[in-house]
Design a protein around this nucleic acid. Structure first.
Lengths: 218, 218
DNA sequence: AAATTTTTGAGACGCGCGTATCATATTGAT
DNA sequence: ATCAATATGATACGCGCGTCTCAAAAATTT
């Protein structure tokens, strides 16, 4: 009754303030900034002390907004039985959402890098533990139709390769470094994803014989 | 005569102290930690004030060590004329180096995310400007043999796709999220890179004009 | 060797984050 | 309406980063 991360149902003044803060934080982050707890407090017109009661650190705040942004992605499921089509579906669902929450996901990545550094240094005080592993399940689910056609190790390798072109990292590389716009960014990611899926399938077919012609998987 | 970023030739006490700090910082970072300027100062046994004279911020420090770690990668060149082979060569050169400087590159990524956030917020004080764009040239150089065989847009798209599986991001996803070891991490990246190169080549052979998505490999 | 320039070190300062304390306001039940 | 429980706000504290000032030390010049 206390660990209700979601801002959904709960009642009472506690839940009300928490929801207010979460909405304020989400709004600020979608505007591109990565607010500190104090900044959210000011924007939500609550005192700093109160703000810190609900979100003890910027990390907790970002984590909560990430869960918010992740919502529609985590419940994704495709009706198609074609792996390549399913992966494309997943990308179509996830990438706009990731872009809409770009600042949030970048902040989460930044904080996870912080955690990694602190872990290396041994200065890992608390135990927040960022998640960042959702893509593992999602991608495996997306290519599930191939589970029978690929050797387990190849299945896993494909999921791993796809996860390289799935998260915010794509935005960092293609938008920030290459300077692409949203449309081209998605296009490149989609092409790469499709190419990897087709390559995995082609290899598995080629295993038994030739070089793998006639590749269209149903 | 003042903008000598390199720690190489210069003489005098100034260059000496700077070199000492850079070596100390590199050593600390290869040990996994991401030291603050103050920490490097202490480890190098110079005063905080002196340390800040040479590296006004942790960002400047990390940038310098990144340049250090990037060295052997930037001068890479392959003798092979085969694009796939060249890409594999590049990965073989770069990935161990990136792993050796893992903490450094992760710190650089973190700082570039910081910069991005500050730019969004308009609070972009100084003008350090992290680079992070080397992979663009390197990968285009690696697949240069395909420049004649691919349409320019496909050539660029391949380079962009490859850049998704080239940097520290690979370590973050495969080592930290998936929990792979170094060997498997490289193996997955190599497979994905090869698959993308082959896919690009196959498409160019298979078609003279389609526009990308959902192309059937022949 | 003496004088001048350059480099260094020690300390103090402001700033923002995260924490703790205590009084006040609000809520909910009797 | 009264009283207990709970939520809130104002304030102060410690901490680390980055900046600044000024005197001492080292290097360079004359």
């Amino acid at each position: 009754m206390e660990r209700g991360t979601g801002l959904a149902a709960e009642r009472g003044p506690r839940a009300r303030t928490k929801r207010l803060m979460l909405e304020t934080a989400t709004r600020l982050m979608q505007a591109g900034v990565t607010p500190s707890v104090s900044e959210v407090a000011e924007a939500a017109e609550v005192s700093r002390a109160t703000a810190y009661r609900y979100f003890p650190s910027q990390a907790a705040l970002v984590q909560a907004v990430v869960d918010e942004g992740l919502g529609p992605i985590l419940t994704w499921q495709s009706t198609s039985a074609n792996a390549e089509r399913r992966v494309a579906d997943l990308f179509d669902t996830a990438m706009p959402r990731i872009e809409a929450f770009e600042a949030t996901f970048k902040a989460a990545l930044k904080l996870s890098l912080d955690q990694w550094a602190r872990r290396q240094a041994g200065t890992l005080g608390g135990e927040p533990a960022f998640t960042r592993g959702h893509r593992v399940d999602l991608l495996q689910q997306a290519i599930a139709p191939l589970k029978g056609h690929l050797r387990p190790r190849d299945f896993k390798r494909l999921a791993q390769a796809l996860s390289l072109i799935f998260g915010v990292e794509v935005l960092i590389v293609l938008k920030d470094i290459w300077g692409l716009d949203s449309r081209k960014t998605r296009s490149v990611a989609q092409w790469a994803a499709g190419a990897l899926v087709r390559a995995a399938v082609a290899e598995s077919i080629g295993e038994g014989g030739g070089d793998g012609s006639s590749v269209v998987v149903k």
